[in-house]
Simulated assay, not measured.
Amino acid sequence: MNPLRVAIVGFGKIARDQHVPAIAAADGVELVAVASRNASLPGVPHAATLDELLRDGPPIDAVALCTPPQVRHAQAAMALAAGKHVMLEKPPGATVAEITPLVTAARAAQRTLFATWHSRFAPAVEPARQLLAGRKVTSVKITWKEDVRVWHPGQVWIFEPGGLGVFDPGINALSILTRILPQPLFVTSADLAFPANRDAPIAATLALSDAQGLNITAEFDFLQTGPQSWDIDLDTDGGPVTLSMGGARLRAGGKQLVDAAEAEYVGLYRRFRELAATGESDVDLAPLQIVADAFLLGRRRTVEPFEEAT
């Protein structure tokens, strides 16, 4: 089988830190071009924009869109119209509804649309799902707190409309939760803290449930200093279960069941290659729907302005 020839569109921190090494480590996938106005990769053909890449760049089979979510819909539509498979970094878009036309376009073009949730490929997530399949979950607590100044330095778009603010990392926890729990989840209340000078929240508290009345709470914070927290604690009829380090570790019954190195993005590209081989799409919007409902239902509070130190 010929390798899947991928172009990365948008070459910021996530593309450099995750996508480039993952493509190099994934069998059957090859990085053949980069499209970015502000950055390039030595030795790899470069274009300033996606349309320039499609017009003048080397032959490609697929694009990985690592641009801010506010511009991904137009780029995905352009790539699908050009007959390319499309990987969408998370979140897949700035709104829920804009993804549906892309699914339709991918089906018509017989091309893959892959809305990725990289945290679902963390090493402890599937073992946790299998463990919980035999248990009754009685409550869940999410604690997802990190420092935006460390993980998103200079990324102004994240606090602009459609950038999600603290839900950019928080949606990772929701993507795990919607994978490991068997029932659909919905928001029952939300408190959103917006800096006075920003258009997206810097902290949030959510309450969620399912049709059986499961009690779920989530605390998201974008100003955590010191140790960072990416934890999901579940009470079950078989004892407590904890997913920590963003899904890299699983503990249950007083034992560490999984403690593995991160390899999420390699899993993403393996899945992308499998999908592209048949033209199948994989688009689960449940995590994005929860965030959208949090904005719809949430009580908004104004907090002190956020200024990133220079």
Rank of each mutant, 00 (worst) to 15 (best):
I99V: 11
F306Y: 13
H73A: 07
A33F: 04
E52H: 13
A24V: 08
K90M: 06
I202N: 08
R129G: 04
R37E: 14
T116D: 10
V86S: 05
I216C: 00
P91I: 02
I60W: 01
S244W: 07
H19M: 09
R107E: 12
P195K: 01
P42I: 05
R135T: 08
P68H: 00
G57E: 04
T138K: 07
A97M: 03
I171C: 09
A173G: 12
I180C: 08
R72T: 08
P305H: 11
F306D: 11
A260G: 03
H46C: 11
Q289H: 12
R111L: 05
F194S: 03
I14S: 12
F194W: 07
V34R: 02
T242A: 13
P127M: 12
Q228N: 10
P227K: 08
V266C: 04
T138R: 14
L174C: 02
V29K: 00
A277G: 09
G154H: 04
A108I: 05
G83Q: 10
L181W: 02
V137A: 15
H85R: 01
S229Y: 09
F306L: 13
A204Y: 05
D259N: 13
Q224V: 02
A292Q: 14
K145H: 15
V137K: 08
G134V: 06
F114A: 05
T178S: 11
I216A: 01
A204Q: 12
